[in-house]
Design a protein around this nucleic acid. Structure first.
Length: 546
RNA sequence: GGCCCGUUGGUCAAGAGGUUAAGACGACGCCCUUUCACGGCGUAAUCAUGGGUUCGAUUCCCGUACGGGUCACCA
């Protein structure tokens, strides 16, 4: 077979050679140990947790003086959605992930582009042509039906699936057959001529998992689809070679095709990158675990967290605790440090599928928000509300000081309150402060009779003095409690309930319900001061007279 | 079905031949307390399984089971 002739027949327009690209994309001049990595999403419009998960590469790159870039894998035109690139960039930007190079909304930056795969067609075809010239790739004219028939035949014969051996019908066809098919206008794909043997094992060192022993690839996989665009396998190998990627961080589902990739790297004489296969994110479905699914699980999408309003850093804190087993310990020791100060390491990454734990995320987020200043929380909430609750945003802007004061209740000190972990929860929690959104949700404590209710509120209103200190204020409450026949100490009431009508718990809960509309709320005196005397009195009176 | 990866309490997990098998979330209990939170103290709960190797295996090897992934001109 004249491979040279075949190559010209297949790629008459390709004039470049692989060496041209080697000089065009020289090895990067970076410090020893620098990590060059990327995220390479396909523009389907759905930005998910896995994208953010793999964006951990950004830390690795920047920790080592390396490069982090964005490549768009748009080889599947059918699945492409408009605006998807913007969505990815926007989401990454939101989470503070910045790219040194790669695709941008309206173009790209960097010297190793183009960073959109469809624009790299000539490069792929040049490499493909070189493979044909070496007898390592050949055209296959099989139709979809023929391939499907092959699959069923293999199923029946209990053979391995795939295009190989006797099933590889175009593998060794004479040039004349190919010429005939070509001139008949038949569509073709370019297949790799694999020299692999299923009995062989390849060893690959995984950055996360250590040494992997895998079955060698023995199938003639498709390199170029009939439209001349490469498959993932071929594009990945060409791109990560010429973009001089040192670390390929991706989901473990790629483990199955890893043998193809290393085989291609080896045969092309290119140095293999360090593969890092991350564990799949799982969730509990009834009794069993399963992979988080795009269709069934909204929590897979990044938008979910943005809508609920988990602060970016809190989301990272959670992700980092899942990703790096020693992060949690570090964070406990350095509660106020930015998570970026943590040195991330591949070796500490989990290898088993991690269950996604929303409860823990929420806990981490509460802890995080409880340690922020009122100003920070105000700004974060306002920012979120601007997008998801414009009415709230309007009120917050009109009454900034009021909202900041409300947010500040229970903040500071060694035991800050952890009332909410997300902006949506904060919005809900804070609603009772603002007269415009104030509603009563809890009822008067059961032990308080109607006449006592009136008596307590009347006396409380009479004694109320906003100049009082917290101690003075509470002393008055106690005095009133005692005078009305309620136990000042809850313990005494518990011991001898028959001696009292109730305890101070009931009295203060009544006051709480009157002022906040609920039995559970932060410190009543602080709240009263946020509300101001007029509003506090108005609510007390309203409740008494209701 | 083939191939591959994985398996420590309910969840996330530390552990690297000899440990009372960390810690966190959750649960429960107690304490603190004007409610709810917070905080403090404590309790329950784990090495999938069978064989090896070894004086000794959670740790190393093999098998089994279970879970997951993957077998496209999708990535």
């Amino acid at each position: 077979m004249d491979y040279q002739a075949l190559a010209e027949l297949l790629f008459p327009d390709i004039r470049e050679n692989v060496g041209d690209y080697e000089t065009k994309y020289p090895p990067r001049d970076l410090p020893e140990g620098a990590v060059v990595t990327r995220i390479a999403p396909s523009p389907t419009g759905f930005v998910h947790l896995g994208n953010l998960y793999n964006a951990i590469g950004e830390r690795l790159a920047h920790q080592t003086g390396g490069v982090f870039f964005l490549r768009i894998e748009d080889t599947d035109q059918k699945r492409e959605v408009e605006g998807a690139v913007e969505a990815v960039i926007d989401a990454m930007n939101f989470y503070g992930v910045h790219f040194d190079e790669g695709a941008t909304v309206d173009g790209e930056t960097g010297n190793y582009g183009p960073y959109r795969q469809r624009q790299r067609k000539t490069l792929y075809q040049t490499v493909a042509k070189s493979l044909v010239q070496r007898g390592l790739a050949y055209p296959c004219f099989c139709t979809e039906e023929e391939l499907a028939g092959m699959h069923t035949a293999q199923e029946a014969a209990k053979d391995n699936y795939g295009y190989y051996g006797k099933y590889a019908v175009w593998r060794d066809r004479p040039l004349s057959d190919i010429e005939a098919a070509l001139s008949a206008g038949k569509e073709w794909v370019l297949r790799f001529r694999s020299a692999g043997d299923p009995a062989n094992t390849v060893t690959v060192k995984d950055g996360i998992r250590g040494e992997l022993k895998l079955q060698e690839n023995f199938t003639d996989v498709v390199l170029l689809k009939s439209d001349g665009i490469p498959t993932y396998h071929f594009a990945h190998v060409c791109d990560d070679h010429f973009m001089r990627t040192t670390h390929v961080i991706r989901d473990e589902s790629w483990l199955a095709t890893l043998p193809i990739h290393v085989q291609l790297f080896d045969i092309l004489g290119w140095e293999r990158p360090v593969y890092c296969h991350t564990a799949t994110l799982m969730k509990m479905d009834g009794e069993s675990k399963r992979k988080l699914s795009k269709r069934k699980d909204p929590e897979l999408g990044l938008r979910f967290y943005r809508e609920i309003g988990y602060p970016q850093e809190a989301t990272w804190l959670y992700l980092l605790t899942v990703l790096n087993s020693n992060f949690e310990e570090w964070h406990l020791a350095n509660p106020d440090a930015d998570s970026r100060e943590f040195t991330f390491s591949l070796e500490k990454m989990s290898t088993s599928g991690a269950l996604f734990d929303l409860e823990k995320l929420d806990n981490i987020a509460r802890e995080y928000l409880s340690r922020r200043t009122a100003d920070f929380v105000y700004e974060g909430l306002l920012d979120w509300a601007g997008q998801f609750d414009t009415a709230l945003a309007g009120r917050m802007q009109a009454k900034a000081d009021f909202y900041k004061a409300a947010i500040n209740v229970g903040r500071g000190g060694d035991k800050p309150r952890k009332d909410y972990g997300s902006w949506s929860a904060a919005a809900k929690f804070l609603a009772f402060y603002d007269p415009e959104t104030f509603t009563r949700t809890d009822a008067c404590p059961e032990l308080i009779s109607a006449e006592d209710k009136t008596a307590i509120l009347t006396q409380y209103l009479a004694s109320l003095n906003f100049a009082d200190t917290q101690e003075e204020w509470f002393a008055k409450v106690k005095e009133m409690t005692d005078a009305l026949g309620y136990a000042v100490q809850p313990k005494k009431y518990k011991k001898n309930p028959e001696l009292y009508k109730g305890s101070i718990v009931d009295v203060t809960n009544l006051l709480r319900v009157a002022v906040t509309g609920r039995q559970n709320a932060p410190d009543l005196w602080e709240i009263s001061h946020v509300l101001g005397e007029a509003e506090t009195r108005r609510r007390l009176t309203e409740y008494r007279d209701a």
